[in-house]
Computed example of a mutant assay.
Amino acid sequence: MSGRPQSPRPQIGGIRETFAPWADPQARPLVRFDGVSKTFGDTTAVDDVSVSIYEREFFALLGPSGCGKTTLMRMLAGFEQPDAGRILLADRDIQADPPHRRPVHMMFQAYALFPHLSVAQNIAFGLKQQKMARDEIAPRVEEMLSLVRLDGMGKRRIDQLSGGQRQRVALARALAPRPRILLLDEPMAALDKKLREETQFELMALQQTLGMTFMIVTHDQDEAMVVADRIAVMREGRIVQVGRPAEVYEAPADRYVAGFIGDINLFEGRVAASENGVVRLVSGDGTFEAEGTGPVGETAWVAVRPEKIAVHAEPPPEGANTLAGRILDYGYLGDWTTYLVEIAPGRTLRAARANATRATDRPLGCDDPVWLTFATSSAVVLTR
């Protein structure tokens, strides 16, 4: 969504620092899933899910294919009915409402645009279905075209548009009826990487400008981390963690979340000590200290992200959270270099080093001996 002067947009980062209605015990959620389950034959798609979404929130359902996230969204839209539980919108059970009677609109992954209609006619389609007055439709269509930066393109055919432009038409069509909540089903899956990244920020700004509630389904961790106020990570029909992107990334609830959101290194061992919010864990790889709590004598895991591991060409002082190894392989990513470090036969770790300068005095390469260290505060203890 670029190529023309852009008006000032909301500073999303600043807004999100203070936006937390879920932390207010007096706040009423806009949408509430209450013990919702759904099965298809012998397959349980959604298993006793309870979660709330608040007014003006950008909420993400994140998980692999088949985890139930799209089924949950389709039940909110009315395209599927729950087998158990309730779905409430503004404190009202909407199960008996057909899809066209719900103040909810869904933008599909395939866009589902009508090729025989113009851009403007596609956007107007839902308004006509709602029997909006004819003299109100044209101004609303023009408003939507401007909102998604397609001014002057209303008469074009769909086959004359790029992939990014088609996506914006689909978005405008979904927004035109002004729903209480907009559902986005993998909306950027068909876009190339650069356009997808640009569109993420435009979508966030649009949501803030409209003051609308958005709910997105995606399997792309980076996408969810960028756009969402909160992320619900799903696994096998259940929600395993809900939190702000930073909370889910820095303090995963378990090994599944830690491994699904970004890369992770795990050290399994026995808890030797746990005091003052720090756990000492003894494993076959060494002795580690990390923030958290754990029962002494029980099995636990220290989890540390690759970018939090420092790579040294010379031995550092002895201590916890120190490992020796050799570089098995590495990949240059432009802003980062990722190293695959073998610390024992068949045992490898990932470490990432920011390329802060154009060159280094001592570049590291394959088979070089290295030492890895990380701070206690950079690691977290997981007990499941």
Rank of each mutant, 00 (worst) to 15 (best):
F214L: 14
R235Y: 03
L184P: 00
I239E: 03
D192P: 06
V257Y: 02
Q241S: 06
Q208T: 13
V242D: 02
F214N: 12
E247C: 02
M204G: 09
D185C: 13
R235V: 01
L184A: 08
E250W: 00
A205T: 06
T209L: 07
E223N: 04
D254W: 00
L191E: 08
F201S: 11
K193T: 10
I231R: 01
D185V: 04
V257I: 06
Y249K: 15
E197S: 14
T213G: 12
K194Y: 03
G237S: 08
F201A: 14
L183K: 10
M204L: 12
R230T: 11
P252W: 09
E186H: 11
D229P: 09
A246V: 06
E250L: 07
M234P: 06
L203D: 01
E223F: 00
I239K: 02
V227W: 02
D192G: 13
R255K: 11
R235I: 00
G259K: 11
V233N: 07
I216G: 01
G259M: 10
I231P: 05
R244H: 13
F214T: 13
L195N: 05
A253W: 04
F201K: 04
A228S: 15
M234K: 10
I231T: 12
L183N: 04
L203P: 01
E202K: 12
E247Y: 06
R196C: 12
E197W: 04
V242S: 11
Q208K: 13
E223R: 00
R235N: 15
R235M: 03
D222I: 00
K194T: 11
E250I: 00
D222Y: 00
V217R: 14
P187W: 01
A189S: 15
Q221Y: 02
Q221T: 11
D185R: 03
E197C: 09
M204R: 15
R244Y: 12
Y256S: 08
A189F: 11
M188T: 06
R255D: 12
Y256I: 08
V227C: 05
H219Q: 14
K194F: 02
Q207L: 12
L206G: 04
L191N: 06
A253I: 05
M215Q: 10
M225W: 02
A253Y: 02
E250N: 05
D220R: 00
Q200V: 04
Q241R: 06
I181D: 11
M212A: 14
T218Q: 05
V217Y: 08
I181Y: 05
R180Q: 15
L195C: 07
T209I: 09
A205N: 05
H219L: 06
I231C: 10
A190R: 02
M225L: 14
E250P: 00
P245M: 07
E186W: 09
I216Q: 15
V233G: 07
G259S: 14
Y256L: 14
G211Y: 01
M215G: 05
V226W: 11
M225I: 12
E197A: 15
E247M: 04
R255W: 00
M188R: 01
V240Q: 06
D220M: 06
A232W: 02
A258N: 10
K194H: 09
Q208W: 11
A251G: 02
D220C: 03
D220L: 03
R255L: 11
V248P: 05
L184F: 06
A258G: 10
I231V: 15
V242P: 12
I239Y: 10
G243I: 10
K194C: 08
A258L: 09
G243P: 14
L210K: 01
A251L: 08
T199D: 04
V242H: 12
V242T: 15
